[in-house]
Design a protein around this nucleic acid. Sequence first.
DNA 1: TCTGATTGGTTAAACGATTGAAGATATTAT
DNA 2: ATAATATCTTCAATCGTTTAACCAATCAGA
Lengths: 340, 340
Amino acid sequence: MATMREVAILAGVSTATVSHVINGSKKISAETTERVLQAVSQVNYKPNTLAKSLRMGQTHTIGVLVEDIRGLPVASIVSGISETLSRSGYKTILHDLHLLEKLYNQYEQIGAYRQRINDGLSLLQSANVDGIIYVAMHDRHLDYLFDEMETPLVFAYSHGTEKDTYVTYSNRDSAADMIRFLISKGHERIAVIAGHPHSYPTAQRLLGIQMAMQQAGLSLPQEYIRYGDWEYESGIAQTRELLKLPVRPTAIFAMNDLMAAGCMAVLTSYGCRIPEDIAVAGFDNREIAAYLQPPLTTIGLPTTQIGVQAALHIIDMINNQRVHPAREIIPCSIIERASV
Amino acid sequence: MATMREVAILAGVSTATVSHVINGSKKISAETTERVLQAVSQVNYKPNTLAKSLRMGQTHTIGVLVEDIRGLPVASIVSGISETLSRSGYKTILHDLHLLEKLYNQYEQIGAYRQRINDGLSLLQSANVDGIIYVAMHDRHLDYLFDEMETPLVFAYSHGTEKDTYVTYSNRDSAADMIRFLISKGHERIAVIAGHPHSYPTAQRLLGIQMAMQQAGLSLPQEYIRYGDWEYESGIAQTRELLKLPVRPTAIFAMNDLMAAGCMAVLTSYGCRIPEDIAVAGFDNREIAAYLQPPLTTIGLPTTQIGVQAALHIIDMINNQRVHPAREIIPCSIIERASV
DNA sequence: TCTGATTGGTTAAACGATTGAAGATATTAT
DNA sequence: ATAATATCTTCAATCGTTTAACCAATCAGA
């Protein structure tokens, strides 16, 4: 690879001049500029990024820390991040923690989870990234891990603490939206298959649901709220319970598509027609939702948008030494299909 | 961040000595070593990667070029790559071409597709990566793009040309395996819903299917081979055609899970029981396969393994200046579920 | 004609490491 | 006692840029 020195010699000038021509950092006569440019293209000169970064203290590289790239929302967020970054001339260095959801709780207990995040962070930092985007799927209290960081950091998807900049979606509002949508379709007896009882998304979504019901002057009886564990099987089990009730709901809102799928399987096997007898709605818009019979009405997460915004924020923080943490909440959309 | 000079001063030695202590590149007395190490931990010294890379001409960074990270196999391959790389002390710099499958042909026509790849490659090269892994979902003739590259390159998933190193799976053998599996379950009249007629995977898989049938002394009549276009709808259309035949098959092998899903939907709506009346098999093991009714027997791609091996190969090429291209074909596995 | 500003370019010191060659000291051989 | 050797440590160049400080030449104004 040709170096700047070679260009300089060929053009009969100093490296300083070449640098100024390339970066426009100083006025150089048209004639000299021409000569330098000529030389540049003659030897196909490309500036050495390493040298430049070393000197400037900026690598134009953003570290993206993900818990597991195999998660569909994760890939989609990373897609948004990476596209936005590369548009702005930044490179993406990806570090995968390889924490499948299943392993997560386990790790948490033995503290290896925190260790893993910490290692990831310092690895990225020692790669001299200009900033870090942490794509977190879970809301946990990892505050202190990030407290002493000097590298700009933004959370994507899940949010951090008060002091952090993050981009997320609203569990509460989107759940409320779905309820309103169901109500607009004429439903008044709406049952809910919630996620893990003590999880943050479950609590928030439930809040939104109750809010929307109340605003419409409808009631959500306790027996219409069933807790699952986000898995397919729990959708099956909870739906069976719902069908035992004396007064059946006319719609079931499951807090994710997997449980909705389980729910639909049970309804079908019980001879309930969807949506005529009972309508079903999900949350997440995973691929599976489109291929269920009938296709599932669900809530689409703004994953790509989250990525895009997170990238824009980190760039902004880098350029403007921003002090105040920014928080952004991106609305979800309802994906209308035949199940409602 | 503390620099090496500070450590040197604190320990009362030269930077050269510090460097030697850290890298073990020269024998340093136990006493001095101790003093240096002390100083290192005292100021929490971490070597500056940029300076090191600039001097050594190695960044310990691998560029991963993907067509679209949102593809499920892609994410899984990247997962394998990234885990393996980071285990070996390499960083992953990800560049996403953002070529959704739909856009692919379009891009091809206007030549922007090649342009995009080229840009990606030079971007990675100017980031001084030590090697590049190209995760290609399509087999196309892009030879000349990669010909003049001096950076080590390996193809993952799809293969390149004769001259390239690649890691892939066998379309032919895995399709043959599935046929043998179906035969072992007692099926003799097996129909096939193939992919795009002129695509490489379609041709290869068909080859394997015919081979396996022949070996078992069975015939595959022309009317049992239907061509789709990989999409759900084509699974529906082609299955309808199959059901019109005077002698129906007892098993249908669709060349991907989406078409298999379409197929199952039609069978169910026609009152055919799966697998009692007609068994169904797919290819890809997408998430959807596990949640169909009944769950779909399919072929699982060794995506993570492909990533792992690709990473090992690129590292090997970097360390050993390998000359001969290596080719690796990883076997697929049959995921047994209730649809057969 | 002299002073001061403007223009166009160069010099050389960083940035933070690595490393061959050389220097200093201690040890051993003659 | 001197030379030769071994052991530890340092010097200084190098990787490829950027940039403050400097210099030389031209030009404008009094």
